[in-house]
């Protein structure tokens, strides 16, 4: 099976620091792929490279047979890759449904002139955008909160809203950056249900996560990064119990713990 996302020899250098060092990664369509590693391993940097927020120092990203290495974030989204953020970045000044409608930005076909003149086409596009947003909210079980302000949501719900916003762009692959961070066990169970639902809807999931139990329970494939390098890849049981992985997390005796 051809990989949906193929990152080859990705290196991302900030000054003297190689945050991501020559990493190869393939994501198969339809799988839930977890990217794990200790703090500072380069997971989020890798996300930023794939989603176009950073342009890698070297290496290439092929998505669905197309090179997207040099594309900007907004262009990457249009291609069908979407993401959430580790430090929740919602549009706090907008209502929940509006947040999700921004997620549908690339799929809404209404120009400014059309909107100013209220043409039939633009009104139709706006209605579709709204309906798509409501459907997406229903998908994650938040449709009743649609008109509330995003800033008033509890923490766990904010993370779910970020996922809904990302889904509204009809992605082929969704990248979740620590979706379970700060969630209690009820919330993270709810989250795994939603992630399975996303997978069942035919959307590939790539996630960064710290919670090992969560990763073991949910992913089909695990890639482990440490100090910017890939140290292990495989099915969860194997990858999580590999000697180098345990060493990366717990450290060797003489090694200092990385902050």
């Amino acid at each position: 099976m051809a990989a949906l996302l193929k990152a080859s020899n990705i290196t991302m250098q900030f000054g003297g620091l190689k945050a991501v060092d020559n990493v190869d990664m393939e994501i198969q369509p339809g799988e839930i792929h977890a990217l794990i590693g200790p703090n500072g391993a380069g997971k989020t940097t890798f996300f930023n490279v794939v989603s176009g927020i950073y342009s890698p120092t070297s290496g290439s990203v092929i998505f669905d047979g197309e090179e997207i290495t040099k594309l900007k974030a907004y262009q990457v989204t249009a291609k069908g890759i979407t993401r959430t953020f580790q430090n929740i970045l919602l549009f706090e000044n907008m209502s929940i449904v509006e947040n999700v409608m921004v997620g549908g930005h690339t799929r809404t076909d209404s120009g400014l002139v059309g909107s100013l003149l209220r043409t039939g086409k633009s009104r139709r596009a706006e209605r579709e955008c709204y309906e798509n947003a409501m459907k997406t909210l229903a998908f994650v079980g938040m449709e009743e909160l649609a008109d509330q302000s995003a800033s008033g949501l509890p923490y766990g719900k904010k993370r779910i809203l970020e996922i809904a916003r990302a889904l509204a762009s009809h992605p082929k692959i969704i990248m979740l950056d620590e979706p379970a961070a700060g969630m209690n066990s009820t919330e993270s169970e709810e989250l795994s249900r939603i992630i399975f639902k996303i997978r069942d809807a035919g959307i590939t999931v790539l996630l960064v996560e710290h919670d090992m139990k969560f990763v073991a329970g949910i992913s089909d494939m695990v890639t482990v990064l440490d100090h910017g390098q890939k140290i292990c890849e495989g099915v969860p049981q194997m990858a999580l119990n590999g000697p180098r992985v345990i060493e990366a997390y717990l450290g060797k005796e003489e090694e200092e713990e990385e902050a």
Partner: peptide, 11 residues
């Protein structure tokens, strides 16, 4: 409100 997020949403 959040320029990085808006560009990640395709703006």
């Amino acid at each position: 409100s959040a320029p990085i997020a808006s560009s990640a949403m395709g703006v």
